[in-house]
């Protein structure tokens, strides 16, 4: 595309370039960088009984000097207090376990849909997406009804005679896992499905022809070729689950503290916006670093060839 399009005014093209390049940056600046800056700024303030409830970043002195106050105490506190560390670790663990569970459950489902006869696929996909038509909150509430002591699950198990007294599932870590896996499974299935439908069936035939049993063909051909789908699905589950608030709040108990709940408490109960903002910044850092590393690794893998 070295030669310019002859009969199109130069100004026109420049405008379209500004729009093409500028608009995404404008969007990113307005709705990502600016809020991020505000959060960063709040995290460096101190709480105050004011509106908004934190100290100003700078102050004009009589002498005409400006003093800038940066309070790193919030970050120190986040670092020093075990409570926050526990919440972070708990969040990461829940997110990791749930991502793995979603992968284990979602991969076979995505594979089944991708290999189903054409006329079934749309219906099966609809079934995956269908829960989105109900409010997320209502679906999580419904799990309370299922998991509570005299809820659907316990009554069913009692009726079967598998258990003698109701299991305490609600308000435990298990309930959080169930709720999260249930809620985020579609985010794993959809990218995997998109990836697996593009798989060339003749590659599996070639593998079989070269002596691969179906299971080995899966391991050596299907699985490596669906890596991009696995990564995409895992990101879509892992990242939001780390900051998940609603599910642990409704289904979890006192021992299932996660970062989302922590943020809520600091913001709304303790009115300590700066501390909450510092927590949010740390969380962001924890999520971005592995993401960048992952991307690097993937790029290097691609450079090696893929």
């Amino acid at each position: 595309m070295a030669a310019p399009v002859p009969n199109r005014p130069v100004r026109d093209r420049r405008l379209s370039r500004i729009v093409n390049v500028g608009l995404p940056y404008l969007w990113l600046g307005l709705f990502f960088l600016l809020p991020l800056g505000i959060v960063l700024r709040i995290s460096l303030a101190e709480p105050a009984l004011a509106q908004p409830p934190y100290t100003a970043l700078w102050e004009w002195l009589e002498s005409g000097m400006v003093t800038i106050q940066l309070n790193f105490g919030n970050f120190m506190l986040v670092w020093a207090d075990d409570l926050y560390l526990v919440a972070f670790l708990n969040s990461l663990r829940v997110a990791l376990v749930c991502t793995l569970l979603c992968l284990l459950l979602g991969y076979p489902m995505a594979y089944a849909i991708a290999t189903a006869p054409e006329r079934w696929r749309l219906l099966l996909l609809m079934l995956i997406v269908l829960p989105f038509w109900t409010s997320f909150l209502i679906r999580v509430y419904a799990w309370i009804g299922i998991l509570k002591a005299n809820g659907f699950l316990n009554n069913f198990l009692l009726w079967l005679g598998v258990i003698d007294e109701p299991l305490a599932i609600l308000h435990t870590q298990v309930a959080v896992y169930i709720g999260v896996v249930y809620s985020y499974l579609p985010f794993m299935i959809l990218p995997l499905y998109a990836n697996l439908t593009r798989l060339d069936r003749s590659l599996l035939e070639a593998a079989a022809d070269l002596g691969c049993r179906p299971w080995r063909a899966f391991l050596r051909v299907t699985l490596p070729l669906s890596r991009a789908g696995i990564i995409a699905g895992s990101m879509l589950v892992f990242i939001p689950v780390v900051g998940e608030f609603v599910i642990p709040d409704l289904l979890g108990g006192p021992r299932t503290l996660m970062v989302g709940g922590m943020l809520w408490t600091e913001f709304f109960s303790n009115k300590d916006w700066p501390l909450a903002a510092a927590l949010a910044m740390v969380l962001l850092g924890l999520l971005v670093v592995p993401f960048v590393l992952m991307q690097r690794w993937q790029q290097r893998a691609e450079a090696r060839g893929s």
């Binding site: 022809d209 070269l210 691969c212 049993r213």
Partner: peptide
């Protein structure tokens, strides 16, 4: 089944494994 037949096939669409280099493709069987 195909993986137990003493037969190999070259496919019309080649069906080379895209995630392996030429050497690995040849080595696969």
């Amino acid at each position: 089944p195909p993986y137990h037949r003493p037969v190999n096939m070259m496919f019309q669409s080649y069906a080379l494994f895209p995630h392996m280099n030429v050497e690995q493709n040849v080595e696969f069987g």
